[in-house]
Design a protein around this nucleic acid. Structure first.
Lengths: 188, 188
DNA sequence: ACCTGAACACCGTTCAAGT
DNA sequence: ACCTGAACACCGTTCAAGT
């Protein structure tokens, strides 16, 4: 990585920090510039306006998410007591998270909102989800007969659960039980 | 409804319009004031700052959503060819909508994003989802044995589908088929 | 190629003042 | 109770200028 690339990704890392701390509505070019120790105009030299900065930031963030995901999955696979049901339960427990307690979900909310006003960002989000489905289908293909069906069920469910999982009539434990039963039914 | 109330709800209706057209990031007190034919300071007399205006707007919007929901469901129930499987398929087709094509979902995205930075708005969103679950459980209780389980499955799924349903390995028709099969399994 | 500072139109909020 | 206009600090963007 040369010096310019380092500079660019440092700006993006700082932008993620500001986004996470203050939210999309509070993020300003001036704040990012200050946090990155740049003058406003110098920041604009690297990212010429706010839109471009946000798109680059989202893509940088997605890249990070992928790294985190593969790392977590690899750790899971290497566990000494690995069985398919244990793997499944662990994955479900990992995926069903409350959006308000999870910094990754807070970032995604900001990105979603921005993407509904920005065609290019919308495409970046769509691409990420598409790839996410591909990785997870591949992962599930090692253990299940119907990976496409399982992923088409579980990924949207997890996304929705992040939004409003806390107010459902069933608690998380019962939901995981239900999902495991449904998966067994799909696979049978 | 007295004159003040009318004035207040007119402002909220105008705010919803501006939000839908331009998005949360483009919404300004000045724009709302202009669109509602008020001076900026006069708008601030009714809603003293942007936060309060947005919370009131979200609640007003939720109220509208409830009306729309009950109306749609009543029309469905009154249909001459009503059977439980047809009802279920129609409801699923109605619920599984692409978030980008649906103006209600665009509004919800804006509200979600705002709510992650605002405790009071977050509570309003949570309350809405809680009530939504209660209505739908009641509705399903007329036709199904396990309404809580079905709603705990379907509502988060529909929310997640709105976000990323377009990139799933299965198409909508197959997904509805899968869900109907799963529902049958839960009920059996 | 990289960086600066001033200027512009816009924003939310505050406040003293009117009816 | 309802409404006004000016003022303030902040914002994104543009631009002419430096190294």
């Amino acid at each position: 990585m040369d010096k310019k690339e380092e500079r660019l990704s440092h700006i993006l890392a700082v932008t993620i920090e500001v986004l996470g701390k203050e939210g999309a509505d509070q993020l300003s070019m001036r704040k990012v510039a200050k946090a990155a120790n740049l003058s406003l105009s110098n920041l604009q030299y690297y990212y010429k306006d706010k839109e471009i900065l946000l798109i680059a930031t989202a893509q940088y963030y997605f890249q990070r998410c992928k790294q985190e995901f593969t790392q977590t999955i690899n750790l899971l696979k290497e566990k000494h007591n690995f069985t398919v049901p244990i793997f499944l339960e662990t994955v479900l427990d990992l995926w069903l998270v409350n959006g308000k307690e999870n910094s990754q979900n807070i970032m995604f909310r900001e990105i979603w909102a921005l993407s509904s006003r920005n065609k290019e960002l919308e495409i970046a989000v769509e691409t990420y989800y598409k790839n996410y489905c591909i990785w997870t289908v591949e992962l599930f293909a090692s253990f299940f007969k119907q990976p496409e069906r399982l992923i088409s069920l579980l990924i949207p469910y997890a996304e929705g659960y992040a939004i409003m999982g806390t107010v459902l009539p069933l608690d998380k434990k019962k939901i995981i039980g239900m999902l495991m039963d449904l998966i067994e039914h799909i696979e049978s």
